[in-house]
């Protein structure tokens, strides 16, 4: 069984649903799906000009993982530009800040502030938690 994927923390979701090329001929209906965490990685490194070490702490993943997310984001955007594809944003493996979680064993609901490293239930310490979108 592969190791479970940590949820990536996203401070703010992208302010758009997608980008479409215009003025191009024989446009297929191909789309590239840019994940929220990939958008966040691009934003942190190339817009906020953080280095990977600072950015990975903000997103709650390790530095190598951050580098992988960032690389995949760059490649997706590059291929969208070159192949004149549409970019759409999808949720991916992310959770938004001020997001609530629910523990599957004791049913407690809780938040995880950004200063906290552990990703587990604060009461029963089980790692069996799910994210709930809105509260």
């Amino acid at each position: 069984m592969p190791r479970r994927r940590r949820l990536r923390r996203v401070v703010a979701p992208p302010g758009f649903k997608g980008y479409k090329p215009y003025g191009c001929q024989n446009r297929g209906n191909n789309k590239i799906e840019l994940l929220y965490e990939e958008y966040e990685a691009i934003k942190l490194t190339d817009y906020d000009l953080l280095n990977h070490n600072q950015a990975c702490v903000l997103m709650g993943v390790s530095r190598p993982t951050f580098a992988r997310i960032y690389e995949s984001a760059r490649r997706k955007i590059a291929s969208a530009l070159v192949e004149t594809k549409e970019i759409v944003t999808v949720y991916g493996n992310a959770y938004l800040e001020k997001h609530w979680f629910v523990c599957s064993s004791c049913h407690a609901r809780f938040t995880i502030p950004k200063t906290m490293q552990e990703h587990q239930c604060p009461l029963c310490k089980s790692g069996n938690i799910k994210s709930v979108s809105k509260m």
């Binding site: 800040e97 001020k98 049913h107 407690a108 609901r109 809780f110 938040t111 995880i112 502030p113 950004k114 200063t115 906290m116 604060p122 009461l123």
Partner: peptide, 12 residues
């Protein structure tokens, strides 16, 4: 409380 990074826990 979200702004000051305090963890909130809601118990049933």
């Amino acid at each position: 409380l979200g702004k000051v990074d305090i963890q909130l826990v809601i118990l049933p």
